[in-house]
Design a protein around this nucleic acid. Structure first.
Lengths: 163, 163
DNA sequence: CCCAACATGTTGCGTGCGCAACTATTCCGG
DNA sequence: CCGGAATAGTTGCGCACGCAACATGTTGGG
């Protein structure tokens, strides 16, 4: 054999990232769904709550969440349907639409976070020593900046690498 | 505010893992799809090709791929439909069904791997120094073993932590 | 030996997503 | 100032997945 590309260490390395993500994701998603906030909805509300004036252009939301525009549009539909978000038109660009989190949305996600954090602690941050976690985050950020520029889309536009 | 749980560093840490994964995944998936092997199919063939006698029980395949049994069943349906895999009954357990990769399947994935490796190199392994990559893999493995035990399901049953 | 609990795999159904096509608006070159 | 290119968002369509119900086969207790 030529060294069997089937067992190439690079494939293993990527596999590790994927398995880690999928495993964690499945556990977190399950809990969030039980609380009535499926992962996509949770993430969207979180992004909105964190943003200036608690709103984001749909396009930016899509970019931040790694969704297509249509995906973001329908996600916002669902949130609007539950009263957790409202659409607002943009004065300076009449094509535009903001998604704005409502009081109800803010309160819902606020209530969901504590239990969510516990689970994260149990399955992710608590598994590693603090310095290990820092190292991991640093390395991941390095990769993320390459594979997913625009993760901070719509945040501001002038700084380099905020927290 | 109580320290704003919205910006809890643990959420950021998880977000980093997710963003990195999603970004990488999207790039790799796009290429694989272009080559005619969507990510799920690619992964399944890879797992089969790597396994003893190039076959796996559907249940084990599901576990390895982090899919439900039904998802694995239909995935195998698709592969069978393309002649890349065949089902084989299990002698010792007549409920059972193996998925077995065919020559065609082996050849297809073999052809797809080189370009795939290049992309991995470009967006993942090549982004980091070799020692950084080792560190990252080590940390990820630590987390994975907690969130996704059974990642090696059906491989063998007696060792501790192979490559 | 038999029946109850369990395990494996398949199928009906609902859902969330991407792609492509479409509408509405903005931007820009001449 | 006009018309074509680009951008924001929505919608029709198809697809892959999970859940629940089911069919089949296995295993263990009485």
């Amino acid at each position: 054999m030529t060294g069997s590309p089937l067992h190439d260490p690079r494939i293993t390395a990527v596999g590790l990232l994927i398995e880690t993500h999928d495993g964690l994701q499945r556990r977190l998603a399950k809990q969030l769904t039980e609380v009535g906030l499926p992962r996509a909805e949770f993430d969207a509300l979180l992004r909105l709550a964190r943003s200036d004036h608690e709103r984001l252009r749909l396009h930016d939301l899509a970019t931040q969440l790694d969704l297509s525009n249509s995906g973001a549009s329908r996600l916002v539909d669902r949130l609007v349907g539950r009263g957790l978000v409202v659409r607002a038109t943009c004065d300076t660009d009449r094509r535009g639409a903001y998604a704005v989190i409502t009081d109800e949305g803010r309160s819902l996600i606020g209530g969901a976070i504590p239990a969510h954090l516990e689970l994260i602690e149990e399955y992710y941050t608590g598994v590693l020593e603090p310095d290990e976690l820092d190292a991991l985050s640093g390395l991941l950020r390095k990769v993320r900046d390459v594979v997913h520029p625009g993760a901070e889309a719509g945040t501001h536009e002038l700084e380099a690498a905020p927290a």
